[in-house]
Design a protein around this nucleic acid. Structure first.
Length: 304
DNA sequence: TCTGGGGTCCTAGGACCC
DNA sequence: TCTGGGGTCCTAGGACCC
């Protein structure tokens, strides 16, 4: 395959950055977007925390009650998704101009294949700086960009220096860059895979890269081979424009656990209505309906 | 610590077909 | 009577992403 130059663009603490832009009084103060903390008894998690709140230990995905214990003085805001989507669309249309191929990844990230626009990494660096500058001038928001020869390494690179970072990893630097990092930094290595690798004595990407691929194949099946290649910094996946959504869903968590049939039926009615409305608005047809239920012990069942 | 809400993709097993 | 091998499609569950 022809050598490529791939960017990964990641907005810095996107939700809280947008909130602070809209309300400059929040600037310099800890800000947390997520569930209502209700004085430490709230249900749900932190969506985004800004750098001031992160200093106190608050992280995305953490229970909001835990955040409250660590940082009660923070400004807690409910998410304003319509606003974030609007800002996201504006940013994505700026970034899209810089790419031959563009792939949005969640609300605030994107991959850009810039191979035909830049031939060398020095040129790529200049282009990435230009993109950061244009986003900052037009949106007053900062981002971090990683540049390498594939999506995997570019994504790790964008996370390497944050906020407002730019990290270039040239092909000859990949091993030196990746080997000291925790396996968890690899795309598709989550908590479960990290635990399984730990059992095999593998903690860093370097450990994984030096591992016997046969052992990985035995433990993980085909994904083991994928893991091994990832550790070598190998990723041939293309930057691909996302097509239309494959599913639409809504879910809700009760303030207090319940087994009251009427309460449950009413909640189900309400979220069904939202899903159906969205499908109609987007002129979509569907053939499968799935209902999901989660019990107190977090056991989850689906029925389609 | 006690776990939201929106998604995608993969795998195993079963039904069914020729 | 009990049975192969190839294939598709579907469901449930789970891992992972932001």
């Amino acid at each position: 395959m022809k050598a490529r130059i791939i960017f990964h663009l990641d907005m810095d603490h996107f939700y809280t950055a947008v909130e602070t832009r809209e309300n400059p009084a929040l600037s310099g103060k800890p800000v947390i977007v997520g569930a209502n903390p209700k004085g430490g008894h709230g249900r749900g998690v932190v969506s985004t925390s800004n750098y001031e709140a992160r200093k106190a230990g608050v992280r995305s995905g953490m229970p909001i009650s835990h955040a409250w214990k660590m940082c009660p003085e923070a400004f807690y805001l409910p998410p304003n998704f319509p606003l974030y989507i609007q800002v996201s669309n504006e940013i994505m249309s700026i970034a899209r101009k810089y790419a031959d191929k563009f792939e949005q990844w969640g609300i605030d990230e994107a991959f850009l294949d810039t191979s035909s626009k830049v031939k060398r990494f020095e040129e790529a660096e200049a282009l990435a700086k230009q993109l950061k500058q244009e986003i900052y001038e037009k949106q007053h928001l900062t981002c971090s960009i990683g540049v390498s020869l594939n999506k995997l390494v570019a994504k790790i690179a964008s996370d390497y220096q944050k906020p407002n970072g730019l990290t270039i990893v040239k092909p000859e630097e990949i091993a030196k860059f990746m080997h000291p990092l925790a396996v968890r930094k690899l795309l598709w290595v989550g908590r479960k895979t990290e635990e399984k690798l730990k059992v095999l004595g593998i903690a860093t990407i370097g450990d994984l890269a030096r591992c016997d691929p046969a052992v990985l194949l035995e433990t993980f099946g085909v994904t083991g081979t994928q893991l091994y290649l990832s550790a070598q910094g190998v990723d041939c996946s293309e930057v691909e424009e996302r097509t239309e959504a494959k599913s639409i869903s809504h879910e809700t968590t009760f303030e207090d656990d319940t087994s009251d049939k009427l309460t449950i039926a009413q909640a189900l009615d309400a979220i069904s209505e939202e899903v159906s409305k969205e499908a109609q608005e987007q002129n979509l047809f569907f053939k499968t309906v799935t209902i999901k239920v989660r019990f107190r012990n977090f056991e989850t069942h689906t029925w389609s």
